[in-house]
Amino acid sequence: MKKTNILDVVSRKLSPFILLFGIYLVTFGHISPGGGFQGGVALASGLLLILLAQGPAVLVQYFPLGRIAKAEVAGYGLFLLAGLAGFLLGAGFLSPLFPPPGTIFILNIVIGAKVGAGITLICWYLFHEMEEQE
């Protein structure tokens, strides 16, 4: 399928704004609607726009696959750590350790990294599998 100039230019201009909106959703999740999951999915859809319209080489150039995988693992580990920290300090699992926005803010950022990296990796490996079969 031939790629047109319109698709090329629009995807190149639109994807940074989608990524910025995803970061906004993650960081302002405790004030306005949004949060870790929604912001993470917005981040992932920005990366998938690059992958679908620009090709895998451009995505790998700006966001190396190893770093995306590390972000996912770090998200999982930090969430577990933040949960167990409250457990070890005598309060319950995931109990708030910091004054009000603190814990929710940290958990939102961790969940955003985890969800965004996870969905990007799922779609990446599907893409890769399909490309190899041809």
Binding site: P33, G34, V41, A44, L52, F127
Partner: peptide, 26 residues
């Protein structure tokens, strides 16, 4: 329900469309 609306817009219109287009194409 703005939270649910955001999730629906991101997952329904973004990621699942990607998957469906990819599958239809192949």
């Amino acid at each position: 329900a703005p939270d649910v609306a955001l999730t629906e817009a991101a997952v329904g219109a973004g990621v699942s469309t990607f998957l469906y287009i990819w599958i239809v194409k192949h």
